[in-house]
């Protein structure tokens, strides 16, 4: 479960290893006191993932109001010269609005349905669809023609 949490947290944090570990630890800390109840659930790992998304969003929300304005966007322009597509993806993820990012990771990494994603993030199904399509558009714009490099499954 831990490994999966770190990986999900890593995607949510746009490839920031330190923030990812921090988020995974905070998630485990939040479920620690409820473990007796959680361990009787059918899918404790799924519950942990849900807590992870809530922790991510509440933390980001809190931080958004205190965060100092920086020149981050200017310095990490989308015309990224790095050839590694997955690094480009991580950086692009990191620049999406946090809720769009959460939608994308739930839909395409966690493989959750629109309805499940809506339930986890407390959004409407149409809200999930519009955020998902907006996020995909942004990624398509960044990754665009590089996608041909992807290995075919």
């Amino acid at each position: 479960m831990g490994r999966r949490l770190v990986r999900t947290a890593y995607l949510l944090n746009g490839g920031d290893a330190h923030l990812a570990e921090d988020l995974a630890q905070e998630t485990l800390g939040r479920i620690y006191s409820k473990w007796r109840r959680i361990s009787r659930m059918e899918n404790p790992a799924g519950y942990a993932q849900t807590v992870l998304f809530h922790t991510f969003l509440s933390h980001r929300r809190r931080r958004a109001s205190t965060e100092q304005v920086t020149d981050r966007f200017a310095e990490t322009a989308v015309s990224d010269p790095d050839p590694a597509l997955r690094l480009t993806l991580l950086r692009a993820l990191g620049q999406l609005p946090v809720q769009d990012r959460a939608v994308l990771v739930l839909r395409f990494w966690e493989d959750r349905s629109v309805e499940e994603t809506a339930a986890v993030l407390r959004l409407s199904a149409s809200g999930v669809r519009s955020r998902s399509s907006r996020a995909l558009d942004r990624l398509r714009a960044v990754l665009g023609d590089q996608l041909d490099e992807l290995p075919r499954p």
């Binding site: 831990g2 890593y10 490839g15 290893a17 995974a24 630890q25 479920i31 597509l85 997955r86 991580l90």
Partner: peptide, 25 residues
Amino acid sequence: LLREAADLAPETPGELLADSGERRG
């Protein structure tokens, strides 16, 4: 691509994560 990107995530040992999670809890 998300799967490939997730492979870059840190390999935090599970025990370490659980310990620090428990401490925070």
